[in-house]
Design a protein around this nucleic acid. Structure first.
Lengths: 228, 228
DNA sequence: GAGCGGAACATTGCATGCAAAACCGCATCC
DNA sequence: GGATGCGGTTTTGCATGCAATGTTCCGCTC
């Protein structure tokens, strides 16, 4: 009666995944500042794991473009400029364009039902003003639309790029007017999806991302958090 | 005089990179069969390194989609079906479409000169029937066209997907008639690039990849190497 | 006082040890 | 005869130790 498992310790076999998820959250949520060095020792103590899985997690995050590892000098949080975020966003929009056309052709009714259900949940979260829940459901919907295209490579690449710039896009959600408009746009997205109108879906998605980014960019320029 | 450095041993600080490169080559070249399990012990002995950098390399390769790691069951080479390769190719074509439009707008004269130079080298390799040299220069040209768009995310994602399916596309290069046609197409590509005609470049690239893939697919279907 | 050198300290890269999980083969039971 | 449980072996996951590299700070020199 001296072992203490108050914090559920990560299961053997995926400790590095657990760590990667945790560190990714720290970066995406902004708790780890861009450009700052990530101390192995601090995280090891905080997460109660050894350096081996932590270092494996760093490799994963490096592959995702979230951290940069310099030999003998540790891992640092990649500092993205607004231009770099726009570059990623351009890719994401391009990928969604490809995905949209394919999704309307290939999506199973079950997949569309699931997206529809997520949409309802998201609207509910909006009405309860639960920003965090809304944001996560929002991300999930976009990913599911891509997944419905049934192109594994597309899903994987989209998920990666999406995670990379997630925290920047989050910045656009704080304005209430923008939030309402985003929900409206999502209703249009769902509508185009249900009616399987590919080109329409593609254009709505494009406009949705661009207007979302305009709002985010505005917020970021006022309270910059992206220093090189 | 008893230390033996006959094979240059990897420098400290990037041993996992060295290992990842090596294993990637083994996979891309087909020496490690799709679906087969990769034994840590065998590679450790072969590369004369310890398991730690090897396991880090596995994480990197997993991120690239080349291997799959199951907890407690080791790493296996991902077995791509022809459909999966086509999915990746669809993404690559989409990315090149985005890149082409951007490259004609943003490419520096130096970048175009460099691509032009690579093109000449590639034609020379073709005339000397040096397939391997040709193939590598070919890959490099496509990557440089993308890089000239000056979108870091695009370059990174393209490089990743490209590496993933490299060995499958290589299969299309063995037919001499196809080879000649590919060189011709590349001349058109360079021409469109120099004249900075975006839509034209995009369409030529698309057609180039599709006809290349048709040839590769034909070869692969005759001598299948992609078993699940 | 500023610049330089080096010694003490901190951090990283990698090898290795140990324990848990998976795997394999055999014997037993139904 | 086939399924199943069990002991030994192999392999993996993780922790830790050690050597090499990087960092810092203090004294020395100019």
């Amino acid at each position: 009666m001296e072992d203490r498992p108050p914090v559920s310790e990560p299961p053997r076999g995926q400790r590095s995944v657990f760590v990667a998820d945790h560190v990714r959250d720290l970066i995406v949520s902004g708790k780890l500042k861009p450009g700052s060095r990530i101390s192995e020792r601090v995280l090891v103590e905080k997460l109660q794991i050894s350096r081996t899985p932590l270092r494996e997690a760093f490799k994963v995050l490096e592959g995702e473009g979230l951290v940069s590892i310099r030999p003998n000098a540790g891992a640092t949080v990649v500092a993205l400029t607004l231009e770099a975020v726009e570059d990623s966003l351009e890719i994401l929009i391009g990928l969604e364009s490809i995905g949209a056309e394919r999704t309307v052709k290939r999506a199973t009714p079950e997949a569309i039902d699931e997206i529809s259900h997520l949409h309802d949940q998201m609207v509910a979260a909006y009405e309860k003003r639960e920003l965090m829940t809304y944001f996560h459901l929002n991300q999930e919907i976009h990913q599911k639309i891509i997944d419905a295209a049934q192109n594994e490579a597309l899903s994987r690449v989209y998920a990666g790029e999406s995670a990379r710039i997630r925290r920047f896009r989050f910045a656009g959600n704080h304005d209430v007017a923008r939030w309402e408009r985003a929900v409206l746009e999502h209703t249009q997205i769902l509508d185009a999806l249900v009616r399987r109108e590919g080109p329409l879906l593609r254009e709505i998605l494009r406009a949705h991302h661009l207007s979302g980014w305009r709002a985010a960019r505005l917020a970021l320029e006022q309270a910059p958090e992206t220093d090189a």
